[in-house]
Computed example of a mutant assay.
Amino acid sequence: MDFPIFDYTHIFLVAVLFGIGTDYCILLIHRFKEELPNFETVNEAVIHTFRSGGRTVFFSSLTVLVGFSAIGFSNFNIYRSGVGVAVGIVFLILCLVTIVPILMFILAQNCSGR
């Protein structure tokens, strides 16, 4: 893809992905904890969590993705290296919609005995 990579790119990538990834996971887990007593099965609670809170997380991460993708139009190569963060955000979104619900389901099953 010919992205310019600098020494700061990986530091920026780690800082941004850890920051927003942690925030998004906390939001989803907190929402799941609120929904769990309202449903008979853990599966229903996970589905409802992602129908309501997942939409918020998706559009928030989409906004960050568009912002970092727009950096690619910059004239300075050091700023253009921020487009690598946009690629990382794509993988973060994939993890949030695949791995996080699976872990919620497994951990809630083991902890609550439902």
Rank of each mutant, 00 (worst) to 15 (best):
R80L: 02
S61H: 11
D7P: 09
A45C: 08
G88K: 07
H48Q: 15
G67D: 01
F32N: 08
I29V: 15
I47A: 13
G82T: 04
V90H: 09
A108W: 10
P4N: 00
K33Y: 05
A70T: 06
N43M: 08
I102C: 13
F58N: 05
N77H: 07
G54Y: 07
S81V: 02
G19H: 06
Q109C: 09
C25W: 13
V85W: 00
H48I: 10
V46H: 08
G19Y: 04
T41H: 03
I47L: 12
F91Y: 10
T22Y: 08
V85H: 01
F76Y: 10
V90Y: 09
T9N: 00
F59N: 05
L65Y: 08
V90W: 02
P37W: 03
E40G: 09
V46C: 09
P101M: 07
M104K: 04
R55H: 10
R114K: 15
F105S: 10
G72H: 02
F50G: 04
T49A: 06
S74N: 12
G19A: 10
H48D: 11
S69F: 07
G84L: 08
V64Q: 04
R55Y: 09
I26Y: 11
I106Y: 12
L28H: 06
V64S: 07
L65H: 03
I89H: 01
I20Q: 02
Q109V: 05
V97G: 00
H48Y: 11
G113C: 01
F59T: 03
G21E: 13
F58M: 10
G88F: 08
A86P: 01
D23C: 11
V87P: 02
I26L: 14
T49P: 12
Y24M: 15
F18S: 11
T98F: 14
A15Q: 13
N38I: 00
T98R: 14
T22K: 09
R51E: 13
G113F: 03
M1Y: 06
I29R: 14
G19S: 11
T41F: 09
F91A: 04
V85S: 01
C111H: 13
G113M: 05
G113N: 05
N110L: 15
D2Q: 06
H48S: 13
V16Y: 07
Y79V: 06
R114E: 04
N77A: 08
V64Y: 07
S52Q: 08
R31N: 09
I93L: 15
F50E: 00
G84C: 13
M104H: 04
C25A: 15
L17W: 04
I93S: 04
L17G: 02
P4I: 00
Y79R: 01
S112Y: 15
I89M: 03
L94I: 15
G82I: 00
T41I: 08
A86S: 12
P4D: 05
F3W: 03
N43S: 11
F6Q: 04
A108D: 04
G82A: 12
F6L: 06
G84Q: 07
S112L: 14
G113A: 01
I5M: 07
